[in-house]
Design a protein around this nucleic acid. Structure first.
Lengths: 249, 249
DNA sequence: CGTGGCCTTGAAACTTTTCAAAAATTGTGG
DNA sequence: CCACAATTTTTGAAAAGTTTCAAGGCCACG
């Protein structure tokens, strides 16, 4: 057992009570004694490296997950054989709800960066739920927020112009990073252009060009995955339908 | 009190136990004694006419609903001021989950035809859930299926060709009607072309042309809202990526 | 310093949208 | 029950936007 492992296991044993994501995650608004029971049900997990899967499409759904750090994408392979990015999950956001309908996961969940996750086995959940009314309420709320997230994605995909979709995407990303307490105007994009393209329902060249246009407009500054939001105020206005300002040649 | 009202109230008092949607709805796989308690919590509601709302965007979310007959659409007005159809709810499908995240409805729910609905107040739900483990499991499953529905919508909107989206839409509709025990190859479309357009993320002219192309191909026959699926087998193949067969000029 | 992966850019082909008008359907009142 | 008005749907042609295909640039890594 090398020192690195010791540190990692130490990390893993941090409890819900001391987790920085507490307010966003299942423990929020749960009583102290209940929290302790939830805490014991949550399993430790070794960190995942970028590209590793939490579960695969078709797997029996055994657990719900929350990432403490590191983002995940959820991906389906559709009947045509093409894969599509269905979801982007930042730390504190529930992962695995795609298995609750049928008992099997409709997506695969893949780490976009090195990530440490908490795991709550379904079996434990079923035991705990009737006993912890606080958890009950909170689970419904958290599932509801996850659904709201999906609705935003539908609203994004409903826009017919690539720039509108990108605007909505960046604005939503900004809000989510804000919630996490990050510097939301200076983001390292969690996905490749190709992943973004899939999430936005366009091809990757269109993503590149759209980012280029928004940069020419002075809204953002992108260099690879480094994104600076230069004018958050106007970004919000653009999302609300304001037309692009004339850009000098 | 006229005879019509008497009949309506009689209808409203049908219990979950005798409802034809039982297997699809919350009561599924709930024990008889539990079912009785759920039954008492479910409120009667006067029938809604086409165009009437179950709730409006921004309303405090007080209840979950299920339509016994009559379909509903859920609509958001986005920041740009344009309305978008987010969901289509056939009988037996849960309506109102868009309020669970924030406590307020993110959408409006509007009847597409005359509809009778069951209403389960959130307050009752909170009381019942810890007491009825069967309901607990079933609610999670039904919410999961609703989420799966939304995922299908995202997958549909992720397709970049209008015909692909239409194919996915028709195929999904067919499967849902099958589940309801309807003749799924002879459907009265529940929405106008404009609503379909919004749901599919295209303009209504595109819907019209896409339906025209699928008709020329011999897949379907559409006259206004009457839709005949002429070749369900090939519809399924097309959804799975089979290219359109050559259509004689 | 070269290699491979990722991203950007350009030009042509294709699809969808937009705008306009005709056709079909629905609802209504005589 | 028919005819008319209003609404919805279809169709056409031009404009706009996206995809496709191809090539070149950038960056990280060995």
């Amino acid at each position: 057992m090398n020192p690195t492992n010791v540190i990692e296991i130490g990390e893993l044993r941090r409890s819900c009570a001391s987790c920085s994501l507490q307010q966003l995650c299942l423990p929020a608004s749960i009583e102290a004694d209940e929290l302790d029971r939830l805490d014991r049900a949550v399993r430790a997990r070794r960190p995942l490296r970028r590209g590793e899967h939490l579960y695969h499409q078709g797997d029996v759904a055994r657990s719900l997950f929350v990432s403490r750090d590191g983002a995940f994408k959820t991906v389906t392979v559709d009947p045509e054989g093409e894969s599509q990015i269905i979801g982007l999950h930042l730390p504190g956001e529930l992962i695995g709800l795609d298995g609750m309908g049928s008992g099997r996961h409709l997506c695969a969940a893949e780490a976009l960066q090195t990530a440490t996750v908490c795991e709550l086995p379904m079996s434990q959940l079923e035991t705990l739920l009737p006993q912890l009314p606080g958890l009950q309420r909170q689970l419904l709320r958290v599932m509801g927020r996850s659904r709201d997230q999906d609705q935003s994605h539908v609203e994004l995909l409903g826009r017919r112009q690539a720039d509108d979709r990108m605007l909505l995407f960046l604005h939503g990303l900004r809000e989510r990073y804000l919630l996490l307490g990050h510097d939301a105007d200076q983001i390292t994009l969690p996905m490749s252009r190709e992943d973004m393209a899939s999430y936005l329902g366009v091809v990757l060249e269109t993503v590149s060009r759209s980012l280029g246009r928004l940069q020419d407009e002075g809204l953002i500054d992108v260099r690879g995955r480094q994104l600076h939001i230069l004018d958050a105020r106007r970004l919000a206005q653009r999302v609300q339908g304001e037309p692009p300002r004339q850009v000098g040649s």
